[in-house]
Design a protein around this nucleic acid. Structure first.
Lengths: 118, 118
DNA sequence: CAGCATCCATAGGGATACTG
DNA sequence: CAGTATCCCTATGGATGCTG
């Protein structure tokens, strides 16, 4: 338990942040341009999107290809390694489909004073 | 894509934070006391542990049972719902075992100016 | 178009000290 | 033992405006 590759390190490791998982899914069907990624992600700001993309690139999950054209074009594409995340994300989605209602239901009942209860 | 139960909501939803996954695993084999959880988690501060436990409880992942004894005893235990996370976490661990080396290797090579490169 | 620079708000996590 | 209370720091994410 609790080596460097324990779940608590891994979860935030690459898909635990707010946008990475969505970007990965976004790239599932092939390369996408910066602005093509931006739109479905509910209009993330460019800064945040760039940050996330750079981090994914650094970790070997995606490649970034710049085309010397005007107007500029940059394409992002999943690597082999990045594609392995698709399975992981799929499992998470399945978990959510199945159990999220129960979670939300549990949140409704008061009793644990975490939320704003006045 | 991108309903309320999309992966980007789910990942941070319950196991994306720093300690939840470890706590879940900690409770895998039965109820545990506050201090029993605290130790393997590399001595998290009580505040942080309490926060995380309360959040897990609120989401219906664990139960909290107080025994009216001296000295006080409180036990935390996984619910049915909480147990479903064990599978999810196991999948994540397996992903890590398999691919973490590649991630770390990718991080070694410079080229993407995210890290501190001077 | 694809970003970078700048400034800003907040939440997560933590250190330390104290209590029922 | 099992927390609370208080203070603090940093990382994440965001808004706005500018540039090659």
């Amino acid at each position: 338990m609790f080596h460097p590759d324990c779940p608590s390190s891994v979860m935030p490791l690459r898909i635990g942040d707010k946008w990475s998982a969505m970007i990965i899914v976004c790239l599932e069907d092939g390369p996408r341009r910066f602005s093509e990624i931006r739109v479905p992600l509910r209009r993330t700001t460019p800064k945040v999107l760039t940050q996330t993309l750079r981090a994914l690139e650094r970790d070997g999950m995606i490649t970034r290809t710049v085309y010397a054209e005007v107007p500029p074009r940059v394409e992002y594409e999943l690597t082999e390694l990045g594609r392995t995340l698709l399975d992981l994300i799929a499992v998470c989605r399945r978990w959510a489909d199945e159990h999220l209602p129960a979670v939300l239901a549990a949140r409704e009942l008061p009793g644990v004073g975490v939320g704003p209860e006045g």
